[in-house]
Simulated assay, not measured.
Amino acid sequence: MAYRETPRTRAKAEQRRARVERATQYVIASGGFTAASIAAVAREAECSAGLIYTYFDNRDELLGIVFARAASHELAVVEAAVGASTSAAEVVGSVVDVFIRRAVAGRTLAHALLFEEVPDTVQIERRALRRGYVSVIAEGLNHGYSADIPAEVVARSLVGSIAENLVDVLDPEQAPPSTSEVESLITALSTFARTAIGEQ
């Protein structure tokens, strides 16, 4: 008799897969993508390596899926901040604020998502995340922005500027920034962004 999956066995399989994905994100948040070997994930998920390969063809596929899930959450946070803004100045200010604070609060994960060398499967998702940020910011600007510079150009410039200013802040070889350093960076970047769009 051929095996027939039941709702109960399907639910258990989905739970095991979700546990593996959560374990993978935890390992990445603790030590970056380089730490996320199949063996390390299996230890964290308290399962065998063989079980992981039941749900994922290889490590690259697993990392790509986990990156996409983490990226979706981060994008939703930025989208909410933009949606709560009522002017172009508020849009750029809120994006800078939420992006910097979340990155500093989760330095290892943020560094992994933004800068760490990754497999092609993850790089594809990283590019999609950046496009998502640009789209969300540009859409927010279009509702209250009248400068000559296209909103998409402003959005791309803002995303690039934030990322560049986080390179040293998130460097795992550097000490975490102090509270005053974080506040100074947020103030400086917000002022820069508002000035760039002609909003003070």
Rank of each mutant, 00 (worst) to 15 (best):
G32T: 00
T86K: 10
A89R: 15
E183D: 14
A138G: 06
T9W: 02
N58E: 01
T108A: 03
D148E: 09
N142I: 08
R43Q: 13
V154I: 15
A39V: 11
Q25S: 02
R126M: 07
F99I: 10
G106F: 12
E116D: 15
D148V: 11
I137D: 02
V136W: 09
F33L: 00
S94H: 12
E46M: 13
V98N: 07
A29E: 04
A147S: 15
Q174H: 14
E125C: 03
V27M: 02
A84R: 14
G132Q: 07
N142R: 15
V169Y: 03
T34L: 03
A89G: 15
T195G: 10
V78A: 10
V122K: 09
R102Q: 10
A88K: 07
S157K: 11
A128Y: 03
E74N: 12
E46N: 15
S94D: 13
A105N: 12
A105M: 08
R19L: 09
Q123Y: 15
T179I: 12
E117R: 11
L158I: 13
T86L: 07
N165H: 10
E181Y: 07
L185G: 12
S190D: 14
V182K: 07
H143C: 15
V169H: 04
G132N: 06
I100C: 08
A42K: 00
G32I: 01
S94K: 07
R107I: 06
A112W: 05
P177H: 05
G83C: 09
V91H: 03
T9G: 01
